[in-house]
Design a protein around this nucleic acid. Sequence first.
DNA 1: CTGATTCTGGACTGACCGGTCCATAATTGG
DNA 2: CCAATTATGGACCGGTCAGTCCAGAATCAG
Lengths: 193, 193
Amino acid sequence: MARPRCFDEQQALRSALEVFWAKGYNAASMTDLLDATRLSKSSLYASFGSKQALVVEAMRCYAEQLMDGPLAALGRPDASRAEIEEALRATAAVARTEAGQRGCFINNCLTEIAPHDAEVMAAASAAIRQLEAALLAAVRRGQQQGAITTGEPPEALARFLVNTLSGLNLAAKSKPTAERLDDIVRVALRALD
Amino acid sequence: MARPRCFDEQQALRSALEVFWAKGYNAASMTDLLDATRLSKSSLYASFGSKQALVVEAMRCYAEQLMDGPLAALGRPDASRAEIEEALRATAAVARTEAGQRGCFINNCLTEIAPHDAEVMAAASAAIRQLEAALLAAVRRGQQQGAITTGEPPEALARFLVNTLSGLNLAAKSKPTAERLDDIVRVALRALD
DNA sequence: CTGATTCTGGACTGACCGGTCCATAATTGG
DNA sequence: CCAATTATGGACCGGTCAGTCCAGAATCAG
């Protein structure tokens, strides 16, 4: 009875994410988004409602692909110190690439738009909370195994690690050398001893 | 012979900085800047040339007031471990305030505009380099005094500390609790032991 | 083939953008 | 008071912004 949708909403979302990620929210025009998604204006507005709603969806999409990418190790149920180290190193490795210079999309949104948009703030906070929870579980396991100091509560160590990851992603913006990133990761890991 | 300038360029710059800092570069319109500086469009363009040139000057202005504010301790010629701790704590203290939720202006610019503007990138890099140099000097002194580990080169520790400060300023965006910030500072300082 | 329904392209809107320009007001030295 | 010089306000510019809307193409069930 009805004509079926002839485009993949998830695929469009991924394309929109690329645009927002590369250009930032304000600098990404609807024209840019239309070109990237290959959707008509009507279709895009019918599917997502507004530019703001679209970026919020893009943030969720990004958070998912983060946990499947450089932070995948942290998602494993037996994640411990080795997986924390792996996550830090993978983040540093991405930061060296050209694409990595876009930084963390969540942090970009937190910086540019969250202060003036409650929904974006909520989405960013949720993503950060999720990362912290994963780190917390890994820290606890590491402490139980004696691989991580028990001189600090696991919550404190997890918060510190979130902070270090944020910093690495920000550092990525200014074309850091591999040595610089390695220094940061190595010294940060000292805090777990 | 000539009519003297009847406004304070530095004062106008500080006002412009407030606008850019609170709203972000793209979201700050010339109208906003004109209202805040109380200048006419002609005067502002005659003094600074363009919105982009204005933000670059604002970045320099911010970098100065940073070294006179929370990072003042690091500027002292005898700065050592205590001054590093003081800088971290002062940054955390600012992050708790409402004004602190604007984060670090340099990092905001690095995130929003530096990727697409070479001059902004240069200004941001210069500011970060300056901070790192101050930290490096303090780390070296701390190592000589035996207050900081010599198990890592001072450059690595300085880079790590820059990273931690960046992270704290980013964390400021999401209304962090005092406890959370204290955790980050305390754990980061472990890495110096 | 037909009628119902939904998707699609693009014209269109009013507002605002950063930036230019000029006539005028203000202040100077003489 | 005058001539020279500069700051100033505001009109104005073309372009772009996010978002609306509609006529028509595409796809369905029967």
